[in-house]
Every structure is written in structure tokens, then in C-alpha cells.
Design a protein around this nucleic acid. Structure first.
Lengths: 254, 254
DNA sequence: GCATATTCATGACATATATCATATTGATTT
DNA sequence: AAATCAATATGATATATGTCATGAATATGC
């Protein structure tokens, strides 16, 4: 199978075309950062030598679904780049209650602000599908940041973008009622992850609750209501948005 | 009056000693970045020439209490540095409901992640006391970031630190009950702003509610309860923590 | 110094949301 | 195919928290 635009982001099987030149197996090791189209977009600022420095100092790992890629609170020694697959980014809160911050796909830097604050990971990351990831020591990253202003600026942009989204999320979680929060989550999957109004529901009802800060029973109830009103069609493992307009209104009205 | 350590951060009157050499009037203009002890800590990385570049491109303004320093959504053309006084950083949410993210004092960079994302301020900032601030164009800031890796690293640290705190805040707001959230806010004032268990309450009950995501009536009720249990003594304009241990437990248990 | 507006305070009530109990469905193993 | 286990679904109930109404205290303007 050939890689195509709009292919589900977490797709991990078969062959795909990379940069219109190189055929790779998603499950195979990356041959070199220089030929990797799935790495962090900010690597575009790097020179050949810098890419080679990164390439020499990276190590690659594959995770099975549900395996933990980053554990909150553990020493943050590596920046982790998601190459293929889908992962959930979440904070472990009080009395074992989680808060899912976002889903991450290819070309994503996973590190957390803690790396530059207390050298601990601020959040956990767990694989949802099979995940291929590159580990690169922060010393190497910092070295490149110092040497390459464009890369440093890109790093700042990435941090800012994540912080910006978190600002939006705080508002959403604190000021919207359950219906609004869930509608927003459903639209997040459609718009940011699957780029389609019909998609596989990769999270359980429990996890949907952790993402929208509500009890799993409430998630179930609201999904039922949205189905009754013919706004979505949902099964435990799939969602189809039938009336995007109404869903948007619910999401915005809160 | 001479400036002393632990002086309330929002103090703006009289004379104070700066860097043990220069006597300044807080209300007076800063003579030069080179002699300013209240500017952003990250400026320590700058060379004399770079400080002079900043100094030439800054413009200074004084705000009265309740005046808006940064308006959310407006074009983010300047980084703003708080020199003296106290300000509240808040997001304007849905249907006019605000969320106070933090208080800011001297040596703080106020810009928001939006500057590097959509060139709009992500949050608003309003003066609580009289505030003295420096405006520096982002072009100048970016120029220095490009030229000075240490400064860039400091910038990344600052962004990370703010993002880290926001991560903590999301957890607090979503997973703690009202008592825990208010207890935490009271400790935040004591520990991070006033460095004393007895302090002036610079926010109204309404604003305390905007900070802890609850109705002003709930704030009033919980403060009454904490008084009944002799954990704090509070008036509309002052707070004294009587039993820090108990307050900490309430804050942590949520 | 009085009048007016604003904030604070408190009770009664309404509502959103969590919790608990219990089916029911769907997946996995034997 | 039966048995087991986990996820989903739904109703009944409890609880946290918001809203409304009203009065007291405090600040603000003339």
C-alpha cells in the first residue's frame, strides 16, 4: 500500500512513499534523520551536519498499544519524537485520576516543559496504536539549540503552540458544561487527528471522560443524547458526525 | 525608605536602593537597562551592547490600578516587562467570564504564547496596584534571541516555567474541590507573592472566584468556614493564615 | 456628611454532575 | 460453545456547586 494524504495518522502497516523518493516500511528502522519525513518539523532548520549529529545520538524504539512511552515525574533525560502511530498525552492527578491533555501523532516532539524546569517529565505519554519513537538526549538538543538560531526559534514556536493550546484547554475545561466539552472532543478527533467526520474511536468511554473531565457514565449518557438527536452516530469503537453544524454550536455554546 | 528584601512586591512609593549603588525613585523613569534591577532576570545573559539595543528600543509606561496593560486578542507587537507593581493575568472566556491565571510582579515577562503562534495576545493583563512597565518590540527581542544562545535558552526556560505552572493549574482546577482550590490560592498569595502568612488581599471576592473557578458566593462561604475553624483570619482586604498545616492539608486533599 | 453604588455576606433553592447499583453487550479464553 | 472478564449502558440517588434574593457593610461621589 502506498502512503496517501489524509491516511489515518496512526496507520502503521505496510509500505509507504517517503518524500517521493524512498520507500520505507513503517515498522522498519529509520535509516537516517536525513531521509525521515516523519520527524519533528522543526528539524527542517538543521544543516546536514546537525542532522547527522542528531542521527548519531538517537535511539529508536517501538511500543505496543497501552505501553508507557513517558512516565510523569521520571527524570527527563530525552526528548522523544513520535515517528508513527498515535499516543495519548496525560497528566496523572490526585488519587489516581488522569487528565488526557491531547493525542499525539507523527512529527510531534514529546518532552514536556518540565525538561527545562525541574528535569522531570511533566506528563505521561502512552501508546494507543503501535508507536515508533526516537529518543534524543537533551544535551544534544540543547547543543543544537545553542548553535542554530532558526532551530531555537522553532523550538520556541513549538513550546508556544503547546502552551497556547493548553490555555484554550483550561478555558474549555473550566467554563463549558459537559455537552460542550464532549462535543469539542469529538470535533478535535475529526479535525486535528483523523481529518474526517467519520473515524475510529481510539479511546474508551473512561478515557473520553479523562479527556473532558467528567465521569464515564456522563460520557455514555451524553453520547446517547447526541445520537437521539441525530447529531452523531456512535458505537463503542467508532464515531460518525452527522450534523457538524449542531455539534459546533453545542461545542461553542458550552 | 530603603528597599529591603521581602518588601511587599507591589510596593511602589518612596526611594529604594538598587544594586547597592543607585538610588532610584520607583515612580521615576528607569535611566537605563544596564542599571535596572527590576527587569526580566533573563536579561542577565545580555552583553552591554545588547542591553543598549534593548534600552534604545524600549518605551516605558505607568498604569493606574485597574488599567489594562495587555488586551487579549489584540495584536501582540510588544513584549511587556513589569518593573514595579502588581498585575493580574487573566483570560477572557465565554460569555464574559474571566479566569485569572496568575499575579505578576517585577522582573516578569508578560507576552503570552500567542506572540509566537498567531501574533495575538493570549491573555489580558490588568494593573492591580500602580504598575511601571517597559514595552519592547518583538522584532528586537527576536533579534537578540537569534544572536545570543544563552538568552534564547533563558527564553525557553521562561516559557517552560510558565507552561509547567499552567499544567499544574489545569490539574488543580479540574481535580480539586472548591475548598482545595481556595486554600491553594490563599497559599499562592502567601508563598509566591507576599512571602508572608499575613498579607493584603488585593483581589475582590469576585476575582478570587475567577482565580479558583467558582462563584463569588462560594468564595465568601468557604472563607467563612475557614475562619470558623480558625485556619485563617480574613477581612475583605486582608488575610492572615493562622494554621498553615491545616490549610496545606485542605489544599492537597482537594 | 449625606446619598448612592459597590462589595460582602448569608439563606433558600435550583441544577449540573458524580456515585452507586445493576443490566447488558461484546470480547477473550478455555 | 460455554465461561469469564471488561466495557458499555441506564436508572436511582447523592453531592457539589451555581443562582437568586436580600440585607449589611463598605467605599465613592457630590
Amino acid at each position: 500500500m502506498i502512503y496517501v494524504m489524509n491516511m489515518p495518522a496512526h496507520y502503521t502497516g505496510e509500505v509507504f512513499l517517503c518524500q517521493n523518493r524512498i520507500i520505507m516500511y513503517a515498522e522498519n528502522k529509520i535509516t537516517s534523520c536525513a531521509y525521515c519525513s516523519k520527524c519533528w518539523t522543526n528539524f527542517r532548520h538543521l544543516s546536514g551536519d546537525e542532522l547527522e549529529l542528531i542521527n548519531k545520538n538517537r535511539y529508536e524504539a517501538t511500543f505496543k498499544p497501552s505501553e508507557i512511552i513517558i512516565k510523569q515525574g521520571s527524570p527527563a533525560s530525552n526528548a522523544i519524537f513520535l515517528i508513527t502511530g498515535l499516543a495519548k498525552v496525560y497528566m496523572e492527578g490526585y488519587s489516581g485520576k488522569n487528565l488526557i491533555l491531547s493525542l499525539a501523532e507523527h512529527s510531534t516532539l514529546l518532552a514536556g516543559p518540565g525538561a527545562h524546569v525541574n528535569a522531570r517529565y511533566t506528563y505521561s505519554v502512552a501508546a494507543i496504536t503501535q508507536v515508533q519513537a526516537c529518543f534524543i538526549n537533551f544535551d544534544t538538543i540543547r547543543q543544537v539549540i545553542s548553535a542554530n538560531p532558526g532551530f531555537a526559534a522553532g523550538f520556541i514556536e513549538d513550546l508556544s503552540d503547546k502552551s497556547f493550546r493548553l490555555h484554550q484547554k483550561v478555558l474549555n475545561l473550566t467554563q463549558k458544561k459537559m455537552h460542550g466539552r464532549l462535543a469539542e472532543a469529538l470535533l478535535y478527533f475529526a479535525d486535528s487527528i483523523f481529518r474526517s467526520d467519520e473515524y475510529e474511536m481510539v479511546l474508551s468511554r473512561q478515557e473520553l471522560g479523562e479527556m473532558t473531565n467528567m465521569a464515564k457514565e456522563s460520557v455514555v449518557r451524553i453520547i446517547s443524547e447526541l445520537e437521539d438527536e441525530h447529531i452523531i452516530h456512535a458505537t463503542p469503537r467508532s464515531v460518525k458526525i452527522l450534523d457538524r453544524e449542531k455539534l459546533l454550536v453545542i461545542s461553542e455554546k458550552g
